[in-house]
Design a protein around this nucleic acid. Structure first.
Lengths: 229, 229
DNA sequence: CGGTCCTTTGACACGCCTCAATTCATGTGG
DNA sequence: CCACATGAATTGAGGCGTGTCAAAGGACCG
């Protein structure tokens, strides 16, 4: 999952398409695995044999600098693929945020044969090309948005992705820690917390629990995601 | 071109591979075009018919927010591909930085047929997967590095990519404006200028002209790219 | 020589970070 | 069922890095 601005040209069915296609029997039977929360799926540098498809739960992909600074690349939700590699090495870490169920496909961009598996290659291509668009949107946010805009953009994405209506209000879970959000948005934990508190005090959102958000004013949240004032 | 940290697993031949392969006669004869500096190649939203391969010169790809804030996604150097799209729309602008010669290929990720052109699809896949790695490195920089680290990382990439030795010192051109560098690194023009001046005063680099850099202490430059002090 | 555009430099403000303490949520053992 | 421990989230005070605004310098060109 990447934080994207509203004026993008989304092929909104790509993840569904991916899921259906991978779930089909075109390829070898894929192994389904379950992992508890906060467990490591793979590391930067590991041999990238498999591509993983998230079926349930949330994962995070990240890179770290030698001094410990971390940048979370993306949060992977059901339907997302992680681990695609062009050279049979993973270039980032992947860990579970919550309990996760996933399907492992024993082919990758490097090992797939374009002659015998053209459809698989085309699927991976569409997926990576689509993901690149999302990453480009995320660039804009990391490089050019304020803390408030970043947090609001992040919440808007979750709102559109996983929120459920309840008494006319949209409610959703935030399964990741504040530190994950901070490392995803290029902020500190404290700034994330302060910004969320500000949104709560302004009546834009409500926080029944730290990991649960109710959006009281979705339009305002979306507006704040675009410009600071 | 993305700013990358040194501890990445690079298939350093990918751009050469791309160039050789696309230059071959496997596909239809591709049109070669020349463009003057500061001209528009395509816009976000345009129909993405073609993929472009840079032969000479430098291009920049960028996205802009409605209020004018801009983020440069990448600088494209000879051997790079720009314009790959999964849904036949370009999702960013592409302009020339210098005079540019390029080859236009009349196929894209969306229009290519994986059955009849498996090699082309595989090539695009390898290219996009490779570029995703570079973008992930760039995330780390945008989100977690200081101005000094950003500038040094940027200069190190140029050093490794285009510098030539002269009297035992590495020298290279910086074809883009300070504003381009600023929008690429998520800084302001003034901060870019101040940081470059600091590097000059510290004796790490020399600036015979604003657009020409001599690296006096490459090791120190590389060290500064990793940690602020 | 004058105009234009880019770059550099300076003064100042402010947003976010740092460090530290407090509050809160959750789980455990008595 | 309630103290206590643990780890996360929140809140506060203060400093620093980078942005903002403005002006000066420099390169290039007609």
């Amino acid at each position: 999952m990447y934080v994207t601005s509203p004026n993008h040209y989304v092929d909104s069915d790509i993840s569904r398409v991916s899921r259906d296609f991978l779930a089909s029997e075109v390829f070898e039977r894929a192994a389904i695995r379950s992992l508890p929360e906060e467990s490591l799926l793979f590391c930067e540098g590991d041999e990238a044999v498999q591509v993983y498809e998230i079926l349930e739960g949330v994962v995070r992909t990240s890179k770290v600098l030698c001094d410990g600074r971390r940048q979370i690349i993306s949060f992977g939700y059901p339907g997302d693929l992680v681990g695609i590699s062009h050279d049979c090495r993973y270039h980032y870490d992947c860990e579970t945020v919550s309990e996760v169920k996933l399907r492992a496909h024993r082919k990758n961009a490097c090992s797939a044969n374009s002659q015998t598996e053209p459809e698989f290659c085309k699927l991976l291509l569409k997926h990576t090309a689509f993901e690149m668009n999302s990453m480009q949107e995320h660039f804009l946010m990391l490089g050019r948005k304020s803390a408030l805009e970043k947090i609001c953009s992040f919440l808007v994405v979750l709102l559109d992705k996983v929120a459920v209506e309840e008494n006319g209000l949209m409610r959703f879970q935030v399964p990741m820690y504040r530190s994950d959000i901070a490392d995803f948005l290029g902020l500190t934990i404290e700034t994330v917390s302060r910004t969320i508190t500000k949104l709560r005090k302004d009546g834009v959102i409500d926080l029944p629990k730290p990991n649960e958000i109710i959006v009281c004013q979705p339009a305002k949240l979306r507006a704040l995601a675009e410009r600071s004032e």
